[in-house]
Design a protein around this nucleic acid. Structure first.
Lengths: 207, 207
DNA sequence: ATTGAGAGTGTACAAACGTACGCACTTTGT
DNA sequence: ACAAAGTGCGTACGTTTGTACACTCTCAAT
């Protein structure tokens, strides 16, 4: 009578697959209804495997979100690094909000945006995830700061996070032109403001 | 031996008190951990009272959020109606984002903002709440449209929803000046853009 | 070839959950 | 005064949940 663990080789990637499965479950059901058993089913591993690798459910969620943040931070940075002028940087921001054009290989998928909102909500109840979220916000702002002054970056980041939320509930996707206008308005007006504030006599060297 | 229902008069406001208690539970624990029993404890009513007045838990949540939306829509509108010039309207928007100044009696509390985010997340899994959220977005934009052109209102609404999210994770509250600059940038730049787009020959009558 | 450390599994269980329902009681219309 | 209609409550039940744990087996070092 075969008891268990028959012909099952060790599987070093299992932890990671469980985390990916967790993210998939969150996309489908929400943190709200993410359970050990649903994760296990999705990752095609037995229940005991999830409890073996992680101390508890909050731990699974926190590490899954940490993995998401690694991926998204890298994408975000790469996306902004590809821009080589102010105009391109603005276009890159529009891409982050509206999704990709032909020319932009890296962008935030709709699923990633949904996961982000799940994380923001969950962060209120899990300090590890709250710290993670704070770090994410700072990191993404740093990527924006490759092209924009700090306060401009802050305001643009608000658009990047806020617009997709609204878009989720619209029947139609956000209009590219409108988004571009808002991005440009902030970029243009606030950047000059910051230059004046930081250097009212105009003695700073241009970047 | 007293069985039950002794000296307990009918209580017509009970439904409403349960809904208010539900919102309080969501603030404290998140939708994530909102249960019949926690709601009942908070409202100081027996468990059976919650299941009597509502068909199931999703129903309780949906109606609680509906109640929240009624309150917030009214506040939002009242707040915007109090402004009587473009400059005052911009200041009102800043108030919505940063919290009240001395002069502004109506504003969105921090708790209400948290509830809003919980609702956005939950809406993905409950069609009734999704509809509710869509209605909320349109209504709040209409309030903004008292002072701004439609597309300007859209962009400003993104700031109003997006900035508080970021603020939740900052150690310090958003700087009023910075918010005001962003609001003004969008208000000024986009409003002229819309005028040009809708009326390139300048034949429209001023409001 | 042996062995110790650790990976992976299945089963079990108490706690908490959503929901149903019968009975006790109040209110209202007559 | 009284019955019908509806409100309120306690209890109970079947599920699902998170977590613990004894166990089987693999792997790498010796």
């Amino acid at each position: 009578m075969p008891r268990s663990r028959r012909d099952v080789p060790n599987d070093p990637d299992r932890k990671i697959r469980i985390l990916d499965a967790t993210l998939e479950v969150i996309v489908e059901h929400g943190v709200h209804r993410t359970t050990h058993r649903r994760i296990a089913a999705r990752a095609q591993v037995p229940l005991g495997s999830v409890t073996y690798h992680f101390t508890n459910l909050d731990d699974v969620l926190a590490r899954a979100f940490a993995r998401l943040m690694e991926r998204m931070s890298a994408q975000y940075r790469e996306h902004m690094e590809n821009a080589s002028s102010r105009a391109e940087a603005e276009a890159a921001v529009v891409d982050l909000i509206c999704g990709p054009t032909y020319a932009s290989p890296t962008y935030m998928s709709k699923e990633q945006m949904l996961l982000l909102f799940e994380m923001y909500t969950y962060a209120r109840h899990n300090v590890a995830v709250a710290d993670l979220t704070r770090t994410w916000l700072y990191t993404s702002r740093e990527s924006l700061a490759l092209h924009f002054a700090p306060n401009t970056a802050k305001a643009l980041d608000v658009l990047i996070e806020g617009w997709p939320i609204q878009a989720t509930f619209e029947r139609t996707p956000p209009e590219r032109e409108l988004v571009a206008a808002a991005v440009h308005a902030i970029s243009a007006a606030m950047e000059t403001r910051e230059a004046e504030t930081n250097d009212p006599k105009g003695t700073n060297s241009p970047a």
